[in-house]
Simulated scan of single mutants.
Amino acid sequence: MGGRVTATPAHARPGGPPLRVATLGYQTWGHRTLQALIDSDHEVVLAITHPKSEHVYEQMWADSVADLAAENGVPVHVANKPDDAFKAALAEAAPDIIVANNWRTWLPAEVFDAPKYGTLNIHDSLLPKYTGFSPLIWALINGEEEVGLTAHLMDEELDAGDIVLQRSTTVGPTDTVTDLFHRTIDMIGPITLDALDLIASGRTDWTPQDRSQATFFHKRAPQDSHVDWSWPAEVIERFVRAQSDPYPNAFAEFKGQRIRILKASVSRGHYGGTPGRVFIQEDDGMVIVAGPDAWSGKNKGLRIERVRLDDGSEYTAAEFFPHGGGYLT
């Protein structure tokens, strides 16, 4: 986390004039967007970013937009929301277009409509699905076969504007959210510059979103990482992969202490009883009974293979669960 992004070669555009671009961005997502624009032949006239935050999800992937802008002579404005100083800085910069990525607060139409070409937003989901927060985590939990990025024009509804471009990557059976983060973060520069090329060329035939297919997800909190053992084992297994390091891990309580589940898989056998029961060793793991109808004995269990405690110590399942008995809650 926090390392400098390696510069990519200057982008050779197929047509249309270079644009004056202002960016609204935060963390590594905003950093990658700004880096791509700096390396292109567009003129970056302003970078607006949020102040540093103590929120756990905002301390990860925390490459600094402000530092990158300052290192490259780009004017910087730091703000939480579009107040008068924000609007004045933007008006003085007079961009042809704003490019936003991971901007965290609401923008009024007087901001996103102000430039000639409006505002291009880069969102890390295949819209209209997974609008809002932490789309990669929720997509992996839900078993989506692919994830990706959408470059769309901003309007008054969150993540709802017309689509300029989409790019996707396949989700593999063992992919973690960290794997998906790295693959999608590498797509930011190309999709941003390709979308700007289309806009600069005069194209306006963008694809409206089918809002009947939209899903909106809230900002994650610690409780959202708590395992529910009434879920099917295959969902819990994805839930664990969706919260790989450095994200807050999936967790449960056992005998008064919190355990973070670092590695798990779906059991080979079918197991019955009460959800959350620490049941039996299978291969290199301990099977936990799971599922909405666990009493039927028709469900697979979750085979926990590695855990971490709050003090940072890690254990294999055999070390932490030498035998069955007790419940994870």
Rank of each mutant, 00 (worst) to 15 (best):
G15P: 12
D245G: 01
P17Q: 00
I137G: 15
D67S: 13
F112V: 04
V74E: 02
D83S: 04
K298V: 10
A233T: 08
K87M: 09
P17V: 04
L165K: 11
D186V: 03
W106Y: 15
I48K: 05
L19E: 08
W229M: 01
G325E: 11
P128T: 03
L158I: 14
F112L: 07
A85Q: 09
I185D: 07
L149E: 02
K52H: 14
A22S: 13
A160W: 01
G3W: 08
H218Q: 01
I48V: 15
D311W: 02
A70H: 13
T274G: 03
D228C: 07
P135I: 05
R277M: 14
G30S: 12
L309S: 10
E157R: 14
L193G: 02
N299Y: 05
A151P: 13
M60S: 07
Y130H: 15
G161E: 01
A91K: 15
L136W: 06
A290F: 01
P190G: 08
H31K: 03
L107F: 05
A139N: 09
W206G: 03
G172Q: 11
Y26W: 10
P322M: 01
L107W: 10
L19A: 13
A252H: 03
S40W: 00
L127A: 10
E110V: 04
S225Q: 13
A10Y: 01
E92K: 15
R183G: 07
P115I: 08
D39N: 15
E319S: 09
R220I: 12
Q257V: 13
P51D: 12
L136R: 08
D293F: 02
L140N: 13
W106H: 14
E234V: 09
W103H: 07
R183E: 15
S53W: 12
P173N: 05
S313L: 05
L153R: 06
L198F: 06
A317Q: 10
Y130D: 08
T23I: 12
R211Y: 00
F254R: 00
H226W: 14
A93V: 12
R241L: 01
Q209Y: 04
S225P: 02
T184N: 09
L126K: 07
P173M: 05
V287C: 06
L153W: 03
G291Q: 04
L19C: 08
E237K: 03
Q166N: 08
Q223N: 14
T119R: 07
P75A: 11
K255Q: 15
G325Y: 07
D228W: 02
A250T: 14
A195C: 13
G269R: 13
M1I: 04
S212E: 06
M187F: 05
Y57P: 01
L196W: 05
T131W: 03
A294L: 04
I38M: 11
